[in-house]
Every structure is written in structure tokens, then in C-alpha cells.
Amino acid sequence: MWVTDWTSQAACRTRNPGELSTEELAQGREKAVCTGCSVRTECLADALDNRVVFGVWGGMTERERRALLRRRPTVVSWATLLKNARLEYERSVGVRPGPSFDEEFEALFREYFVRLVGFLIKAGARQPDAEDSVQSAFVELAGVWDAVSHRSAWLRTTAYRKWLRLVRKNHIDELVFSLPEDPADDATNDVVGRSQIIQLLRQLPPMQQAVMAFGFDGCSPAETAEAMGVPADNVRQNLRRARSNLSRLIEKNGML
């Protein structure tokens, strides 16, 4: 249900707005405030519709909001767009979730959407492609909700495979064994893609970048191998090479 008077339910309502700064976002300390907030989407929609310039709203900084507005200049009402999002995915999968599903799905979406987008960006995705792939994974999850026991892991694997199909227009089994050894060009103009660690990861060969992304997300080599559809030994070998290459890049760029 869309909350009109969302400010009275915001998790940050007892905090000084100035505390939710861009610097704090970079350090990740505000995550506990925005993540899990029951009206995070309403907050973000309000900031986008009213072109709020300063501060963190709905888990996004002013720079991230400006980037989103530039990418989607034709959106007239973000509140309407976000409010209708659930109706759109329900129609697409032909289900009508009940109240319990609504609450669980919203909680899962709020907890993992941003994290999964970040995971795909670390793996080499541009932010718009990452967002589309993660959203598509959530839509698919709605149709198989009761059949999936480990939903966060399922979402990560599904989002990764959807991204591969999106950018290569091929099947996952054909893709993972044909990744080129030369690193892909960095075409992103997004704020998150300009962080130092993302830029260093983008200098690695695609397979090394992908396995590092899974590693950063807490996956073991066996879990990474299963998600990517490659032998575990292949993952371990690429992890060793990636860590060695990343260490050299960090030292070269004076980040030690």
C-alpha cells in the first residue's frame, strides 16, 4: 500500500536531515537508516518529483538522483511510476499476491535491490543495465516465490544471468566460456561506477572481474561456480589471478 503521509513513518524522522550526508553514504553508515525503511520508496519518489537538491532521500544521494533524472527525463510523476510498479510485475507474471507476500516481497526488495545492482556493477555492468536486470529478476521471483527457498542467492544468480543475456544476447552456457581475456571498455557515466575500486575492477579481464564480484558478495568458489556454470577450479584460478592483479593495481594507484 502506498503511504501518502510517509514522513511520519520514515526511519530517519528522529534524525537531523543534515546527518544523512553524501559523505556518510560513501562510508555506508546511513545504510541502517534507509535500508529496511518502510517508506523508502515514497521518500525517493517525493525527492525525485520535487527535485530535492541536497541530502540522502530514499537511499540515494543528490548526485545519484540527478543521474537518474537525466536518464529518465520523460517521467512525469515518479510517485505514479513507483506506485504502479507492483501492479506491472503482477500483470507480467499473472499472479495476485496476498498481504503476506506483499510484506515479504517489499522487505526483500528494499534489502537487496541496491546491493544486487552494486554486485552487477562490480561484475562489469553499467548501472542502467544492472538496474534492469535486477528488476527483471525480482519480477521472475514473484512468479516462483513459494518454490524458492534461498531467495537472496536465487536473485543474485538470476540477475547475473539476465545481465549476461542482456548484454550478449546469448545463452549463459555459451557466454561464460567465451568471455574475452581483454578487459571490456568502461562505458559507464554513473556515480557508482566512478568509485576507485570499481575503476580498478574494470581493468581486470571480464572473468576475473565477475568472480571477484561474487567474492565481494560473500560467495564461496563453489557457489560462484554454480551460479556462473563453470568448474570450481576455473573460479579458483581466476580468483587467484584477480587478487594478484588487483593487488598490483592498488599498489600502482597508491591506494595502500
Rank of each mutant, 00 (worst) to 15 (best):
T4A: 11
D5V: 13
W6I: 04
T7V: 04
T7C: 01
S8I: 14
Q9C: 04
Q9M: 10
Q9I: 02
A10P: 01
A10G: 14
C12L: 04
R13H: 10
R13C: 11
R13K: 14
T14C: 02
R15T: 07
E19F: 13
E19Q: 15
L20H: 01
T22S: 12
T22C: 08
E23F: 12
E24T: 10
E24H: 09
Q27A: 15
Q27N: 15
G28V: 09
A32K: 15
C34G: 08
C34A: 11
C34Y: 03
G36K: 11
C37G: 08
S38H: 09
R40E: 08
T41W: 06
E42M: 01
E42A: 10
C43P: 01
L44I: 05
A45T: 02
A45E: 04
D46I: 00
A47E: 01
D49S: 03
N50L: 06
N50I: 00
N50W: 03
V53A: 07
V53Q: 10
V53D: 07
F54N: 07
W57H: 13
G59E: 02
M60E: 06
M60R: 05
T61Q: 11
T61K: 07
E62N: 15
E64Q: 15
R65S: 02
R65T: 08
R66D: 07
A67P: 05
A67K: 04
A67C: 08
L68A: 15
R70Q: 15
R72K: 14
P73D: 03
V76M: 08
W78K: 06
W78F: 10
W78L: 04
L81F: 11
N84P: 00
A85F: 04
A85R: 15
A85T: 08
R86W: 14
R86T: 14
R86P: 05
R86C: 03
L87I: 01
L87C: 07
L87V: 06
E88M: 03
Y89M: 13
E90A: 09
E90T: 01
V93A: 03
V93D: 05
V93P: 02
V93W: 04
V95G: 00
R96A: 14
P97G: 12
P97N: 05
P99K: 10
P99E: 13
P99T: 14
S100K: 09
F101L: 12
E103I: 13
F105G: 10
E106F: 12
E106C: 06
E106S: 13
A107M: 02
E111L: 12
F113Y: 15
R115P: 09
F119T: 06
I121L: 05
I121M: 11
I121H: 00
A123N: 03
G124F: 03
G124D: 08
G124Q: 05
A125L: 07
